[in-house]
């Protein structure tokens, strides 16, 4: 599971039928530096994450990528990253 800061949203106007009503977040991935410094953003490319938990901009989420991202769905889904956790508290060593 990778963590990231939600920095935006993607709205589709055309999509395959399984994605009806889907919600997509633009997420900037977080490394250790971003965990320790709130307003620093990593230069890794942002990724788009399917969201069923209702996260919005500014929240930190934990998302699952790869085949396991389709597990929460009943049928086959064209999704490869799924918002599994909206992070409440982060406890991390100081240095």
């Amino acid at each position: 599971m990778r963590f990231g800061k939600v920095i935006g949203k993607v709205v589709l106007n055309q999509h395959c039928d399984q994605l009806a009503g889907s919600r997509w977040l633009v997420v900037s991935p977080m490394g250790k530096a971003e965990f320790q410094n709130e307003d620093s953003y990593s230069n890794e490319p942002s990724t788009i994450v399917y969201d069923a938990l209702g996260a919005n901009e500014g929240s930190i989420i934990g998302f699952t990528e790869g085949g396991e991202a389709t597990l929460p769905f009943d049928g086959p889904m064209p999704v490869d990253s799924y918002n599994a956790v909206i992070v409440d508290q982060i406890q991390m060593e100081a240095k």
């Binding site: 599971m1 938990l53 996260a55 934990g62 956790v85 909206i86 992070v87």
Partner: peptide, 30 residues
């Protein structure tokens, strides 16, 4: 290097302990 807690998450992950783990290279450096 730490852990996270969450109130809103997938039901399967509720109550599961989530740790922040920093990947080490061969020499054991972060």
């Amino acid at each position: 290097v730490g852990n996270v807690t969450s109130a809103v998450c997938h039901p399967g992950i509720e109550g599961v302990r989530l740790l922040l783990c920093e990947v080490l290279d061969d020499a054991g450096n972060a």
